[in-house]
Simulated assay, not measured.
Amino acid sequence: MADRLAFTKMQGLGNDFMVIDAVSHDIDPDPLLTAERIRRWSDRHFGIGFDQLLLVETSHRRDMDFRYRIFNADGGEVEQCGNGARCFARYVAERGLTRRRDIRVETAGGPIVLSLTDDNRVRVDMGHPRFEPEAIPFKPPITETAPPYSLMLSGRPGGIDQVRADVVSMGNPHAVVQVDDLDRYPVAEAGAAIESHPAFPRRVNAGFVQQLAPDHIRLRVFERGAGETLACGTGACAAVAAGIRAGRLRSPCRVELRGGELSIEWSGDDERPLYMTGPAEFVFDGSVPL
């Protein structure tokens, strides 16, 4: 193994990533990507600074072009990341790893298809949202059989003792909470309490939604293992899916995040895929010592 590791820094709406290419370089990721090392690299004062680390690998499946792995800033591996998926697509295309415009990618949360558009944006087939509690996984209150579900928050974080949440899997778990004033809501405190709530045995991403119109929402997301980020692609998908299913929203829906905007399309059919379109940008290339 070389004494330095090459990487690329990318961002999608301010959600930023360290991208490692295990296709072009001789890298054995399992001993390399330890939780301690990822935590050190993710530190914004002493390291590179990022929300997630993305690993580009060759897929062993004949029907897939690549394998895509995602690690949060705390070192834990997760199933899916929508903003990261868009960065992944631009990376493999612009680095010459594929000539396809529609790229089939294997993830821990299931296969996805990434489509490059003519305006340098990426449209992602995110698969279909799932709402069954076991798909999250989520343990609903015994007395409740339909969303939104009541979640009691111990310690009254930010003065909040209870929230009502929709639960959605976009290949990774999301709890979606409707709020009246997103700017004044205690996202950090309530988000941390929801993330580690005992009803979610694998933890959960907590999204807070302020609806502006039937086709326009604002969203802030406290991500599992990363804290609040400037944008969360799967969080935007989950928020819109929950809103369409409840009859509050219609497709396509504009999602306004702190880092920019995404467009989400979904028919409302549980068996039909949901599509997310947004930007992905290169920031810089570098290397770190091993």
Rank of each mutant, 00 (worst) to 15 (best):
A22Y: 06
L151W: 06
M126C: 00
N205Q: 05
S267Q: 09
F222D: 12
D180A: 15
K9I: 01
A108Q: 13
R248G: 00
E132M: 11
L54D: 02
I244Q: 05
Y68G: 01
I20Y: 02
D28A: 13
E261Q: 15
S154M: 06
E106F: 00
V163K: 00
Y149S: 05
F50D: 07
R4Y: 12
G47R: 04
E94F: 00
Q211C: 13
D65G: 07
A188R: 15
D16F: 09
K9L: 09
A175M: 10
E144T: 02
L262W: 00
F138R: 06
C253I: 04
A246P: 05
L249M: 06
G158E: 10
G171W: 02
F50Q: 05
F71E: 04
L212M: 13
S150D: 02
V23M: 11
R39F: 12
A239C: 15
D183Y: 14
P157H: 07
P173H: 02
R40K: 09
M152T: 07
R69D: 11
V167M: 02
A190P: 03
T117C: 14
D166F: 10
C87V: 07
L182K: 13
T145C: 14
N15M: 06
N15R: 01
M152W: 07
T117G: 14
E281G: 12
R101S: 13
E281F: 12
V19F: 04
G259R: 07
C87N: 08
L97R: 02
N83S: 11
G76T: 10
S196L: 13
L262R: 01
D118T: 09
W41C: 09
P137I: 02
L116S: 10
F7D: 03
S154K: 07
V255S: 03
G49S: 09
M126E: 04
